[in-house]
Nucleic acid binder design. Structure first.
Lengths: 237, 237
DNA sequence: GTCTTCATGTCGGAT
DNA sequence: ATCCGACGTGAAGAC
């Protein structure tokens, strides 16, 4: 039987190197003290500290400190990485092109290393997204307002695609922008952009209404809505 | 000497439970087959699969599959978590309030567990940010245009704070919006929002120019800039 | 590839 | 606590 897991406690660099190089489809974790350098879209350096480094078989690299949800440094999927021993350090280099980016993790000491052949066929089932909110309105358009009739989703305008495009009971065009959470000024600007684009394109005399749908709205956003004669409807996803 | 690292290979649930409960300031990693449920701002379920679960001493929880840079499920820092054995499963529950969110990871089998007392005093030094671009312009305002004179940064308007507020050689007000990377329609809307707000506020007759500074601009954004009589200057951070 | 927008975005700074 | 915008945002879908 092939072992799905290999581990090394307080490994010397040769052992760690061998584990990384024979990782294949395994997920690798490295615990130890390291420095990190990154150069690409931006550039960064990180002094020595104890961290968890994760190497995924898809090329992802994550450097996690003991704090925070986000990795302090990383490389995205699709990167190639290699490991070497240099100057008594275990060095992991990850690289990608377009954009050209490289990450170098230099371990003085590796405290623990694992390679785990993980198999995972499951897919996340997520509800409460903006798409769910859209389906809710399409199934029951009166949630927006009585007489509302959806005509299209993702309808294109010169300024981008509108979430829901429809008509009200008076025959006016209605543009609906959906947000799954409380909205700020950016969402108002987005809606305004679509309304302005359609105002330009449609026949003179056609009234274009813009409706922002979200659970709630900040004061600033509310003021911006009023200034631009845009509307707000409170709905949760 | 206190061991900075504890590990358990193919541990029974009691062993894993003990390791988690005595983790203290340690960073914990769990490798094994689990199901995950999340309920909070949204809700999700994830069927059984082999994953890496990271428990940080600050309350962060990360569930990583063998693919992707992002965790498939997570909890942010500040959460409290507890572990239990239920129905022959090791169950890790993480919870927070405001918003009320909970994450449940249910392991059928844990293949490996570690607790690592990581110490990390280092801070990331990052260059190539928007702040760097701002400093570059403030040090040499002619990069924007000859005669430009910065007057303030983060100047408040009714629509939000402007990156750089200044004057051109003709005494016109200049509003500068900075982006460290190629910009799309959203950045144009943002700049337009600030310009419109100041146009309203300032005396009649004062000309307010809006300048978007970024490495480059998409076609749509370029067209939007032109329609609103806003300007673009190409600069890298 | 580029473009556009969503995200359980996360994070930090200011109020 | 909320608001607001930056982020090496990442990820997905359309073209």
């Amino acid at each position: 039987m092939t072992e799905a897991l290999r581990t090394a406690v307080d490994p010397d660099h040769e052992t760690t190197l061998e584990l990384i190089e024979t990782a294949g489809d395994s997920l690798c974790t490295l615990l130890g003290r390291c420095r990190v350098e990154y150069d690409g879209r931006a550039a960064s350096t990180l002094d020595s500290g104890d961290r968890l480094v994760v190497l995924k078989p898809d090329g992802t690299v994550l450097v996690h400190t003991d704090e925070g949800q986000q990795p302090v440094n990383w490389q995205p999927p699709g990167c190639t990485h290699e490991a070497d021993i240099e100057d008594d350090h275990l060095v992991v280099r990850s690289h990608r092109t377009s954009p050209d980016e490289k990450l170098v993790v230099r371990f003085g000491r590796v405290v623990h290393a694992t390679a785990y052949e993980a198999t995972d066929a499951a897919e996340l089932v997520l509800t409460g997204t903006e798409a769910d909110l859209r389906e809710r309105i399409l199934a029951e358009p009166s949630l927006l307002e009585p007489g509302f009739e959806p005509r299209a989703t993702e309808r294109e305008t010169p300024a981008g695609a509108v979430d829901i495009y429809g008509q009200d009971s008076n025959g006016n065009v209605v543009i609906v922008e959906l947000k799954r959470r409380r909205v700020g000024p950016d969402a108002v600007s987005q809606l305004n952009r679509y309304v302005a684009a359609l105002d330009r394109d449609l026949h003179e005399g056609t009234t274009v209404r813009g409706v922002l749908v979200a659970p709630s709205v900040t004061d600033t956003a509310r003021r911006l809505l009023d200034e631009r004669s845009l509307e707000f409807v409170s709905l949760e996803p």
